[in-house]
């Protein structure tokens, strides 16, 4: 059992839902990434999604695009991201960490070399946004062989047939994109999400995470009622951008955002 499965098992046992923050590696500066990951864990994160910056992040809105541009301007690369993971693992061997990004940097690295390096660095899952299940076997199989979970996306538009097609290749958890659009888009509709998650649950036993459009503790708590995990990204990244020149306030405020979501999600009504 890898770190992701173990974490979801523990959460289930204690009746809690996973809180998964996303930040872009190297944003606003590479030196701030590992301290921020630790801050997120201290504030109550259960899993971490670490974005691998890409020059052409087609599925992301302006907030994450700009984060990618900032990270790339500091020379961040997939190799550099794996270095950061290795550094994070020196002091945290428990918290599962998932890389999220686009396929081309991985193609460029070479699948085999990437799987080996990611495993050695302590990566637990890989979510490749532009790699749907039809094209995924070539990367998903070596990942699974190395004990790294390929994480896949599902969308409001995913048909039952597509959910069935995705489930056998997916490990760890399924990431349900809660609205049509890019990251950082409008407001989530909890009832719609609940309906779709029920449909997905009938077809898979994997934990279901929900992301895109979760910006505050209230929404996080509402989603936690129906999902196994809540993913929050753009709202954190935007706060980090705002406080980029004041790393101490940045860590404090982003930590407080996560702590507030944690509190709201864990509250018993």
């Amino acid at each position: 059992m890898n770190r992701i499965a173990r974490r979801f098992q523990d959460l289930r046992r204690t009746g809690r839902k996973a809180l998964i923050p996303y930040i872009t590696a190297g944003d606003p500066r590479p030196a701030l990434t590992v301290p921020m990951l630790h801050t997120l864990v201290e504030a109550g994160a259960d899993l971490l999604e670490l974005g691998v910056p890409f020059s052409d992040p087609m599925a992301d809105g302006p907030v994450i695009q700009k984060a990618c541009e900032r990270a790339l301007s500091h020379g961040m690369s997939l190799r550099g991201v794996l270095e950061l993971v290795r550094e994070f693992r020196q002091t945290d061997s428990e918290t599962p960490l998932v890389l999220m990004g686009y396929l081309n940097p991985i193609e460029s690295f070479g699948y085999e070399a990437f799987v080996a390096s990611a495993g050695a660095a302590g990566v637990d899952g890989v979510l490749t946004v532009d790699l749907p299940p039809e094209e995924a076997a070539e990367l998903a199989e070596p990942l699974m062989a190395a004990g790294i979970d390929p994480i896949f996306l599902l969308a409001p538009t995913s048909s039952a047939e597509r959910i069935r097609q995705t489930a056998p290749l997916a490990r760890g958890y399924l990431y349900y994109v809660s609205l049509k659009g890019v990251t950082g888009s409008a407001i989530i509709n909890v009832d719609e999400v609940a309906n779709k998650l029920a449909q997905i649950r009938a077809l898979t036993d994997l934990p279901l995470g929900v992301g895109f459009g979760i910006k505050d503790p209230f929404t996080a708590a509402a989603i936690a009622q129906v999902a196994d995990a809540v993913v929050v990204g753009s709202t954190l990244v935007s706060k980090m951008a705002e406080l980029a020149d004041d790393p101490e306030s940045m860590r404090r405020e982003v930590g407080a955002m996560i702590a507030a979501m944690r509190l709201a999600m864990d509250a018993k009504d």
Binding site: M58, A59, D130, P132, L154, T157, V177, K180
Partner: peptide, 19 residues
């Protein structure tokens, strides 16, 4: 599935697959 040898295909996010 749109392949010319190893090229082509459909490498997009799930949000676009149905479209």
């Amino acid at each position: 599935r749109g392949h010319f040898g190893r090229y082509g295909g459909r490498f997009v996010a799930e949000t676009l697959m149905e479209a």
